[in-house]
């Protein structure tokens, strides 16, 4: 009954909310920026079905995908300062939103291809890469703010 009452109260308050419509979802924060796309580099947004050509300084959000074709390459710069150079014929996803129970969130999911990762200050930075077979962690893993 308590649950029913609180749900009813929630619905009541939501319906009564006046004034201009508030945004239903907060503005997403970019997880990384894509730089120096060379050749055919494509990006698919988490909410979209289409692959669009990547542009320099393009923001990447959770669950976005990046694909390079033969001869293509791109660099992905993370907010922590670490970066990933993506080689040709690669498919990469930006940080999983909903990892399985007991599985930690990772910054990058590399599904196919090759990447070179750099942490300029590993004592202050961290980067994790998940593949279909393993999880790779570099740097401090934990960054206390």
């Amino acid at each position: 009954m308590a649950v029913a009452l609180s749900l009813a109260g929630l619905l009541c308050c939501t319906q009564d909310r006046g004034g201009p419509a508030a945004p239903l979802t907060p503005t997403p924060t970019p997880r990384a920026l894509l730089h120096h796309p060379h050749g055919q580099v494509m990006v698919k947004r988490a909410a979209g079905d289409d692959w669009v050509p990547a542009k320099d300084a393009m923001p990447l959000y959770e669950d976005d995908k990046v694909r390079t074709t033969s001869g293509a390459s791109a660099t992905i710069q993370f907010a922590s300062g670490s970066s990933v150079a993506l080689a040709e014929d690669a498919l990469l996803g930006i940080s999983e939103t909903h990892p399985r129970p007991g599985q930690d969130r990772t910054d990058v999911t590399l599904l196919q291809g090759h990447l070179d990762a750099t942490l300029e200050r590993p004592a202050q930075q961290a980067l994790s890469v998940t593949t279909p077979a393993a999880t790779v962690r570099a740097g401090r893993e934990i960054v206390f703010q």
């Binding site: 590399l110 990762a117 300029e120 200050r121 590993p122 202050q124």
Partner: peptide, 11 residues
């Protein structure tokens, strides 16, 4: 120990 770290992943 804060030398830059480089590693490569191949899938």
């Amino acid at each position: 120990r804060d030398a830059s770290t480089h590693f490569a992943v191949d899938v």
